[in-house]
Design a protein around this nucleic acid. Structure first.
Lengths: 212, 212
DNA sequence: CTCCTATCTTGACAGTGTCAGGATATGGGC
DNA sequence: GCCCATATCCTGACACTGTCAAGATAGGAG
């Protein structure tokens, strides 16, 4: 490109601009719209056409970027797994540095994510719509799994049972709380809830929560 | 149409009979067809018209018995919760009679149900389609919850944390195994898997699995 | 025997995902 | 500075879905 021509369009060309034919970053806009749509209308009310409308494009526009609805949800799930790991990392950064505390923190992050984005959580763990053989999604989900395995090992876990126990507790808490079923815990104020979750997760640790 | 016509139709009028105008027990037939449809096409591929076709009736026939799709799935969920409790009862009948063993057995039944009917399990715990304020469904789900609470109390649990810990472990194991995510456990032969699940659930018991 | 009511069917409508074909803008080659 | 290959996006169509309205049929009460 030559000189200072006022050409360099901002990546997102004014949200309120008279919509140009070419969106600029439609792929990202569709992913954001899809997540908003999921959060608002739920997994089962999700509609591809509605996502397109929310992004301000025609009903067939998503096809070029994602192929079909499964493709969009696959990409969204991959992004979701990365945010899922990030939520765990955020808790870990605030916790003590010993392995047990780090593992418990990851569990709290697991629950944080499920409570903050319940429908996205379901997309990751219970939906059949994403293509879990997709390379990108597979890598993202494996990264989350590896993180768990590593942390359990650091905390002294040596068996499959150790990994499964911690995973199951964190996942069960996250799923039941996200679905609003475990009201005895879900209705507690944040601090009390965190304390209770910590106690519960610690119970499942390889060493029974006691440092060796 | 006069008299001696071979009129007296059996309640379920020969599955292969030239379908009469009145089915006889369409409500039950639709529930069975719906469960089969869920098992075969999954939660997200579920179609009311397809259920009607499977039951051999017109696409609008379910409306009279269930109102709409939500109504059908609500009734199916209530039935599902009863089967869910029955699966736990089946395991309990085979277990030792001490409270801890009974509680562990209920957990194994929890997982049994999820593995045998994964989509129905999802309908009970993660779907938004049933109307969970429906009286019958509410009663069925509360019965399942009460059963858990009672068993935890019998096993020496005194706090909310005790209940939540056992529930979360059983639910997490069930959900992850039903979704095929926890392969390290799911790929074990039945006996070894049961042994591992028992060890994991026992870990979460109020007394740490040790009889007081 | 008649009629009332529950049961089931047919037909229509709006909304959905996907495909085919046409319109439009972008950037690289000249 | 111009032009066109290509990526991007739109319009229109199809089969399928859930739901509603209106009609057909059967069972049972009187």
């Amino acid at each position: 490109m030559t000189q200072d021509a006022p050409k360099l369009r901002p990546p997102a060309p004014q949200p309120t601009a008279a919509r140009p034919y070419h969106h600029g970053d439609l792929r990202a806009a569709l992913l954001a719209a899809a997540e908003a749509e999921l959060a608002q209308r739920g997994m089962e009310g999700f509609s591809l056409r509605s996502v397109a409308k929310r992004a301000g494009v025609s009903h067939a526009a998503p096809a070029h970027h994602f192929g079909d609805a499964k493709g969009l949800l696959t990409a969204l799930a991959a992004e979701g797994f990365r945010q899922f790991l990030a939520a765990q990392g955020a808790r870990e950064a605030l916790a003590d540095h010993d392995p047990a505390s780090q593992l418990v923190a990851a569990g709290l992050g697991y629950v944080d994510f499920a409570l903050a984005r319940p429908t996205l959580f379901r997309l990751l763990w219970q939906s059949e719509r994403p293509d879990f053989s997709d390379a990108d999604l597979l890598q993202a989900s494996r990264a989350a799994y590896s993180h768990l395995i590593d942390q359990v090992a650091d905390a002294g876990g040596r068996s499959t049972a150790d990994e499964a126990a911690v995973w199951a507790v964190a996942h069960g808490l996250a799923d039941l709380l996200a679905a609003g079923r475990m009201k005895s815990v879900g209705s507690l104020p944040q601090e009390a809830r965190d304390a209770m979750l910590t106690a519960i997760i610690r119970r499942s640790l390889p060493t029974g929560g006691v440092r060796p």
